[in-house]
């Protein structure tokens, strides 16, 4: 199972990267969401795929018996929520970009990088 999950996780990351390299901001956003999903799966493998027992101490017991790795799960749980917030913030930015620049093409979003002609900036020179 581990090899299969690793294959699927790596393939999801690959698909996500392909989408992120697109210049359509919405595709990039979906790619980012996909990237978080793939990364979480790969992270999950780090805790090893051994059992379907949840890391919950049974009633009456004092210590955890054989169960899945809880540390990795705690990590992934916050990663899911943070990845979600990241995706949504990116969505907010895409929406704002569409509202102000009327484009979702990364190539056309240049107002932050355009600095004007060199001459116009150096008005003081000569």
């Amino acid at each position: 199972m581990t090899v299969l999950y690793a294959l699927v996780g790596a393939a999801i990351v690959g698909c996500a990267i392909f989408m992120i390299l697109s210049r359509n901001l919405v595709r990039m956003l979906l790619g980012l969401s996909l990237l978080a999903t793939g990364a979480n799966l790969l992270l999950f493998i780090a805790g090893r795929i051994r059992t379907d027992q949840a890391p919950i101490i049974k009633e009456g017991a004092k210590v955890l018996e054989d169960a899945a790795d809880p540390v990795v799960q705690a990590l992934i749980l916050t990663a899911i929520v943070i990845g979600f917030a990241l995706t949504i913030i990116m969505g907010v930015l895409v929406l704002r970009a569409w509202r102000t620049q009327a484009t979702v093409d990364a190539r056309k979003l240049e107002s932050a990088e355009a600095m004007g002609a060199a001459r116009a900036r150096d008005g003081a020179d000569e």
């Binding site: 805790g47 890391p55 919950i56 101490i57 049974k58 009633e59 017991a61 004092k62 210590v63 955890l64 169960a67 790795d69 809880p70 540390v71 990795v72 799960q73 705690a74 749980l77 916050t78």
Partner: peptide, 22 residues
């Protein structure tokens, strides 16, 4: 993981180890 598994209930009175860690 082993440490959290052993101490989760004894020290933090929680059965769900993931939640106790968090």
């Amino acid at each position: 993981s082993a440490f959290f598994g052993e101490m989760s209930y004894v020290a933090a009175k929680g059965h769900n180890v993931v939640n106790v860690i968090l």
